[in-house]
Design a protein around this nucleic acid. Structure first.
Length: 924
RNA sequence: GCGAAAGUGGCGGAAUUGGUAGACGCACUGGAUUUAGGUUCCAGCGCCUUACGGCGUGGGGGUUCGAGUCCCCCCUUUCGCACCA
């Protein structure tokens, strides 16, 4: 054994051992229960960042822990390889997106391997390879034929200078990021997934995901946004006296349809507002140049909802009127920039008295504000100074006055229905998923446009539609300039036709990769029986930023694949059933596996959303509001001042922010691993913060983590002889006898060790890995303290292999047992050093094959316990009582305590609260 | 703007889930070892106070014998908002 801890030597050795034994290769034929542990796959941006290291370390710790607990673990890895950055890099560096991507993958794969992750690399996949995306195209054609995918117009950001569609990210302050031109909205045809058809199921499914964080489920529920409301028709012509109702066959009275969740406020409507794209607005604009100009203005700006919601609310009167369905009074129709054509009916009824946005709009344009709702137990103070948005009781509302909001909504809907002027409706905030992208580096949409047959899906035998990789990129997709690629024959009529040149949203690839890992080598089917074996994913780990979109799309795809019969027939719309691979017998820590039933119609049974990695920022003012951001690695503290290492001059300290290129505060994980080794990097990441919280980078913290590993190494090195002696006693048939002969000190050390282990097992079940790490540190502290309990005599005898006095056996056992618990507890977090020491000391050949340490409950038993004494809730003292003392005895002992009597000041106890095992509170 | 979370020493964080606030680590201070730097080891370390003691978990209020934890209001920060991944 080397005298010094040398990660540069032991880490490659351990990794070579795992490689040669193919120890992480997962097979389907194991008798053990399966555990599919998946971390979100990386986009191959160039090199790993700290967020990756954190994500994959968390996943690896859970994978290794479950392996030691006796599960058949699958942990795969792949590449989310299509996407916008490859096209930007291609323009910047004059390389093809494909070769840039493949080079990045090769480099990053090497980095991941250097981290020592327990990954089954035989299942690696990259979404930009035809053997992956061909199945996405295949599924697309099936869904297109089923009508789950359809085409319609949709609004995008249009750069009028570059003549390209822009991603929201590429719109900065309403302008294109390269051209600087004011962005416009433009309608183009796009393909859509009918995700709204699954809205109900996606919503209900959340109730069957106990292993998901509550906040993620809440966010998804709100995103799906089921709301019950009323569709109301505002006639566009005044009603002839006495009669209303349906028009004749196929002919209907012209109406303006709106949807509202607050039908109770209907009598407070003072105007209606329509989107700029609404047909009514368009028609009015034909004869109204000012309105036409305004509508054109509304077209400016991005389509991002955050922009739409924060922009100044503007509107203009169309001059048209709609007629109140009950009072028949005319109300003006406004065009408003905050009404979205793509949402609901593209029109809203406005009730300024009871809606904040409508109130502000009415104030601005001098529209009437008519209150119709008041609190149940009070009257409104008039005139209103702000919208009253709470439900209440109706007044000034015709026959409905006096009803509560809830009651009125039902009644109003009923009357409207009888008049054929509306009805109750359920609406969803969720919109269908538009997946067409006018970009090159993505999966081609497998559609052929034929002048006579229309949109024809590419037949199965012509798949995949291969994306040409050897291209030059400038502005716009090269596919649109490659007739040799896009010209083709119509599969139906054989006539001249053209391929679709749009590609798919990269979210499509990441919506099903988790299933393909089960069978990445299958060239004849998207999924096979192996997918049925491994799914659902038992533990999914990734950033909280994916809480809504990616996780919702993946859940949606799971249901699509199920309905295609791809996940095994018994998985189709079935309820819970027995698990084919039962859990190992319940024991300590058994609650850690929230195992999913195989029939769960969800892809991810348990979800862990890790926080981001943040770091300090430093900058120098360059004047004119410009800042030069300096990397933390180049900054140091001299005499309490932050200075740049290069010139020794002070720098400004910014905030602590997410590691990013723009703030230049990223710390390169490679440098960290090169300097300290993978185990230190992993240990620091796990220790510095609980997985779900953000993690603040700290060089000093890394030093601390490294110091701990060095201490472990030194301890093992120093005690090698007595540890192997202890191992012999532990495995001897007399072990129990030896424990019984242990000194009080030895037994109390052992009690502490097992208490720490028990707490660590509990923490692991909660995935609270920072306190598991601190448990390992506590164990080493204890073992070092207990050192003095074992005499030097014992050490030298043990080292010589001679007989030890009986009294010392338990002390040697304590060391050997404690250290073995420490190594096994730490093995998932710092696998290399634990692998090496386990073998060197002689615990066994491979720590991965050892059992997870068990708590010896008999070691936890104690005779006396300490109770806190409180007087009026304030801590005033402590007493020791027998562990089995009853309440009366405890109360008596507490009242007799000198500290308590001092603070009672002779007053009688009003009440005595005894919390067994914890405290006594005396109220005077 | 809407939706969701988080605020605890100088710092990262812990608190057996309503019962000893500050585990573990970092930083710092003192000491030992070392020619020195580094390393390693030992001790101390919430704030105020000479002390007795008091105060203390973003701010304000409430429930309770007892609140970091539960409820209400406010402030700040972070994440998401459908074409970044």
């Amino acid at each position: 054994m080397d005298a010094h801890y040398r990660p540069d030597i032991i880490e490659p050795e351990a990794q070579q051992h795992w490689d040669e034994k193919q120890i992480f290769r997962a097979t389907e034929d194991s008798a053990k229960p399966k555990y599919y542990c998946l971390s979100m796959f990386p986009y191959p941006s160039g090199k790993l960042h700290m967020g990756h290291v954190r994500n994959y370390t968390i996943g690896d710790v859970l994978a290794r822990y479950h392996r030691m607990k006796g599960y058949n673990v699958l942990q795969p890895m792949g590449w989310d390889a299509f996407g916008l950055p490859a096209e930007n890099a291609a323009i910047a560096n004059d390389v093809a997106p494909a070769s840039w991507t493949y080079a990045n993958i090769d480099y990053m794969r090497g980095q991941l391997k250097r981290l020592g992750l327990a990954i089954d690399w035989s299942r690696e996949l990259a979404t930009c390879k035809p053997d992956y995306y061909r199945w996405e195209q295949w599924l697309f054609t099936r869904l297109f034929e089923k009508g789950v995918i359809y085409k319609k117009m949709a609004t995008v950001n249009w750069d009028p200078v570059d003549h390209t569609v822009l991603a929201n990210e590429q719109v900065i302050d309403g302008r294109g990021w390269r051209s600087g031109a004011l962005v416009e909205k433009r309608d183009i045809p796009m393909y859509f997934f009918r995700i709204t058809a699954y809205a109900e199921e996606l919503l209900d499914g959340l109730d069957h995901l106990p292993g998901w964080p509550e906040r993620v489920k809440t966010m998804q529920r709100n995103w799906i946004g089921k709301s019950f409301g009323v569709e109301i028709h505002f006639p566009l012509l005044p009603s002839p006296a006495g009669g209303r109702g349906a028009g004749g066959e196929g002919v209907s009275e012209p109406v303006l349809k709106v949807f509202t969740t607050r039908a109770d406020t209907l009598f407070g409507v003072t105007y209606v507002a329509v989107a700029a794209e609404h047909p009514l607005a368009q028609r009015a604009a034909e004869t109204n140049p000012a309105l036409a100009t305004f509508i054109h203005e509304c077209k400016q700006g991005s389509v991002a909802e955050a922009d739409l919601a924060t922009m100044e609310k503007k509107g203009m009167d169309t001059g048209l009127k709609a007629y109140h369905p009950f009072t028949n009074e005319p109300v003006p129709i406004y065009v408003a920039n905050y009404v979205l054509m793509g949402y609901g009916e593209g029109a809203v009824m406005a009730v300024p008295a009871h809606d904040e946005r409508d109130y502000a709009f009415a104030e601005k344009y001098g529209l009437a504000i008519k209150p119709v709702i008041q609190p149940a137990d009070a009257t409104l103070e008039l005139p209103l100074t702000a919208a009253y948005t709470e439900p209440g009781v109706l007044f000034d509302s015709g026959d409905f006055s006096g009803r509560t909001s809830e009651d009125a909504i039902d009644k109003i809907a009923l009357v409207l229905k009888n008049l054929n002027l509306g009805e109750k409706r359920t609406t969803w905030r969720l919109r269908d998923w538009g997946i067409s992208r006018q970009r090159y580096w993505g999966c081609p949409i497998p559609i052929i446009h034929c002048p006579s047959c229309g949109d024809v899906p590419v037949p199965e035998d012509q798949l995949p539609v291969v994306l040409p990789e050897d291209v030059k990129i400038d502005v716009g997709s090269p596919l649109k300039k490659m007739p040799e690629w896009s010209n083709c024959a119509c599969p139906k009529c054989g006539g001249k036709a053209e391929r679709e040149t749009d590609t798919m949203d990269t979210f499509v690839e990441s919506s099903w990769y988790y299933a393909r890992y089960a069978c990445p080598d299958n060239a004849s089917a998207m999924l096979d029986a192996r997918a049925k074996h491994w799914l659902p994913v038992d533990q999914y780990i990734g950033g909280i930023e994916h809480a809504i979109l990616h996780l919702l799309y993946a859940r949606f795809f799971h249901k699509l694949m199920r309905d295609e019969g791809l996940l095994g027939s018994e998985n189709v719309r079935s309820s819970d059933g027995p698990h084919p691979n039962p859990l190992p017998p319940a024991g300590e820590g058994a609650n850690d596996a929230l195992r999913a039933p195989k029939t769960l119609n969800e892809p991810f049974a348990n979800l862990l959303t890790q926080g981001m990695v943040i770091a300090d920022t430093y900058y120098r003012d360059l004047g004119e509001g410009k800042k030069q951001w300096l990397n933390p690695a180049d900054v140091e503290v001299r005499d309490g001042v932050h200075v740049l290492k290069a010139d020794g001059q002070p720098v400004q300290v910014g905030g602590t922010e997410k590691m990013s290129k723009s703030k230049n505060n990223g710390v390169d994980p490679q440098a960290l691993i090169d300097q300290y080794g993978a185990d230190t990097a992993r240990l620091f990441m796990m220790f510095a913060a609980p997985p779900e919280q953000s993690l603040e980078w700290s060089d000093a913290g890394v030093e601390g983590a490294h110091r701990f590993l060095k201490r472990i190494w030194a301890y093992a090195q120093r005690n090698q002889g007595s540890l192997s002696q202890g191992i012999k006693f532990l495995s001897s048939p007399d072990a129990d006898q030896y424990w019984k002969q242990g000194s009080e000190t030895t037994l109390s050390f052992r009690r502490e060790i097992h208490t720490i282990l028990k707490k660590a097992a509990f923490d692991l079940s909660k995935h609270q890995l920072n306190t598991v790490t601190s448990a390992a540190m506590k164990l080493l502290n204890l073992l070092e303290q207990s050192q003095s309990d074992v005499s030097n005599v014992a050490d030298s005898i043990a080292l010589q292999g001679g007989e030890t006095p009986l009294l010392l056996n338990s002390q040697l056992m304590l060391r050997a047992e404690g250290f073995s618990i420490l190594l096994r507890l730490l093995a998932p977090i710092a696998p290399h050093i634990c692998h090496c020491l386990w073998k060197e000391i002689g615990y066994g050949v491979d720590i991965l094959e050892s059992d997870w340490p068990k708590v010896d409950e008999s070691a936890l038993v104690r005779d006396e316990i300490e109770l806190m004494l409180q007087v009026n809730g304030k801590l005033r003292g402590k007493i020791r009582v027998a562990a089995d003392a009853d309440k009366a005895a405890i109360e008596q002992a507490a009242l007799a305590s000198i500290e308590v009597q001092k603070y009672m000041e002779g007053q009688p106890a009003k009440k005595v609260v005894v919390v067994p095992g914890r405290l006594v509170n005396i109220v005077v």
